[in-house]
Write a protein that binds this DNA or RNA. Structure first.
Lengths: 213, 213
DNA sequence: GTATCTTTGTTATTTTCATAACACTTTAAT
DNA sequence: ATTAAAGTGTTATGAAAATAACAAAGATAC
């Protein structure tokens, strides 16, 4: 498994492969060819083989891929096995929803705390956890070796809070705030800009409408 | 504004341009060059000029771009001015959060209804709206000319519900269900697969960790 | 066991996307 | 007015990504 430098385009496709492989697994399918998978997923077989080969090739010529093995390998690449400690910063609508909705534990993320600057929320029970005030943040992050922060706070405070969290030792952000974080290069940021996504939808609707004229 | 065939790569960058231009606007900046914008946004000036030129070019040589004008043009391209009618299907954690959190109205989306198959939720007040049972769906969509459905239901029901909604006249989906919808080509789908995003984060953390060894 | 078929891994080609280069236009300075 | 500087639109080049092609490996059938 040589990890030279895989493009984010490839990485972005891995979770989808994993999803389909999981379904095959659940249906007790033992083997699958790139051809079959390509028809199922609506991508080219060539791309599938290229993608897998970035990591060394998981198949057997003349046979195909063993579903279980392939699934496990991709899961490993994605780091699903590794354990990380995660907090949610911002216990508003979205923060609460993610706390309840995402199954962090099942994905190897230990969800250990949720914080909000609005002290009216302090102590509110969410899932099996109590909202903490921001004044607890520094100690909590340091003591619990938190490496991931989910940012569900307004953009006005996101940049500053992210900088603070980096200072406390956080290594990665799942950023829902609608702003670009200002963090060092060795910090990982995955942005989820929902309003950007909605605008793309808007564009594509408009385009389709124009096409049908 | 000739609309030959703009790549989704370009479209995907437009919302970010819009965001930065909005900030410049708010700071009463009147003009901006591709060079300045490139430094601000951390992209190449060349890419900015190329992107804008897909739509005909909005600047003046030797001067740059007028911030207000450019902002409005990009907003127009993204179809922010158009009005659409939108419902949320699935009033669970995520559905409720989006109802409260997204400012649909400000983006030209008329949010007109929210539905859930769990009848215990029927009548629950969310924002200024009451959760409706799925049995209302068909009539509501047809009578209110709903063109967008936000899907925040489990993947087990998403595919079927989407097919039904297409039958009722829905033209676009903002899909949060972790599954690929099966809809005709003329239907627009924008997927937000949060767990995929989380896996990408996971991968990149693992990668950074390995680099630092 | 041999021959045929399947299907991968990998190399070659094509297409798409990003960057660089530059001619031409406008602005600004003297 | 003339010249220099700034900065776009656009063309040319380079890089990256996707697809196609194919040889080698293994599976299957007889």
């Amino acid at each position: 498994m040589d990890d030279k430098n895989i493009s984010q385009a490839v990485i972005g496709r891995l979770p989808r492969y994993l999803r389909y492989l999981g379904e095959l697994k659940d249906s007790n399918v033992e083997r699958v060819s790139s051809q079959e998978l390509s028809e199922l997923m609506n991508v080219t077989a060539s791309q599938i083989r290229q993608d897998f080969n970035n990591f060394g090739g998981f198949g057997q010529q003349g046979y195909g891929y063993k579903v279980n093995f392939l699934y496990d390998e991709i899961a490993k690449i994605l780091g699903i096995n590794k354990t990380h400690h995660l907090i949610i910063v911002g216990a508003g609508n979205l923060g609460q929803a993610l706390a309840n909705y995402m199954n962090f534990e099942r994905r190897g993320f230990h969800f250990t705390g949720i914080f909000d600057s609005n002290e009216a929320l302090t102590g509110k029970k969410i899932r099996d956890m109590y909202v903490q005030p921001m004044s607890n943040l520094e100690n909590f992050v340091k003591e619990n070796a938190i490496d991931i922060a989910v940012l569900t706070i307004p953009k006005t405070s996101a940049v500053k809070v992210a900088e603070q969290l980096v200072g406390y030792g956080v290594k990665a952000f799942w950023n829902f705030a609608h702003v670009d974080l200002n963090v060092p290069d060795d910090i990982v940021v995955e942005n989820v800009h929902l309003s950007d996504s909605l605008m793309k939808l808007s564009y594509n609707i408009t385009r389709k409408e124009q096409e049908n004229e």
